[in-house]
């Protein structure tokens, strides 16, 4: 199974980045082989629609699940359509991607069924 964790660095030992669309990078882990690869987030500096763009990247990577701290409404719609399951990392704890992955594999992470916050657009631009 291919799982993506949003991270703020460039290895599996980097801290989790709690934002989905605006995460610094995505760590793709293949649970069968344990191999991981880090992809920079192309949507990091997008003026809007970061969640949609990030979801498209995850689709291309063939991810089946994603772990992050928060998902916006557009990200949820895109990820759901793609059939990618969204999991929530524990809030307020400084965990690395590897630690988050361990919790996930132990079945200790909950699913995000709806957006965790409102969209970021709509500020008059």
């Amino acid at each position: 199974m291919k799982t993506v964790i949003t991270i703020s660095g460039n290895t599996i030992d980097s801290p989790l980045d709690p934002r989905f669309g605006r995460a610094a990078a995505f760590c793709l882990v293949d649970s069968e082989t344990g191999e991981w690869t880090v992809y920079e987030n192309p949507a990091l500096s997008a003026s809007g629609g970061a969640g949609v763009q990030a979801a498209q990247l995850l689709t291309k990577l063939g991810a089946q699940a994603v772990i992050s701290g928060a998902y916006g409404p557009n990200a949820v719609e895109a990820l759901s359509s793609a059939g990618i399951e969204m999991y929530l990392a524990p809030a307020g704890k400084p965990l690395t991607a590897a630690q988050v992955l361990a919790l996930f594999q132990a079945g200790k992470l909950g699913k995000a069924e709806t957006a965790t916050h409102a969209g970021h657009r709509g500020d008059g631009h």
């Binding site: 949507a43 895109a78 359509s81």
Partner: peptide, 12 residues
Amino acid sequence: FHAIAVIGKKTL
């Protein structure tokens, strides 16, 4: 603006 996305067999 990433206002349209193609995901699998869906265009959102």
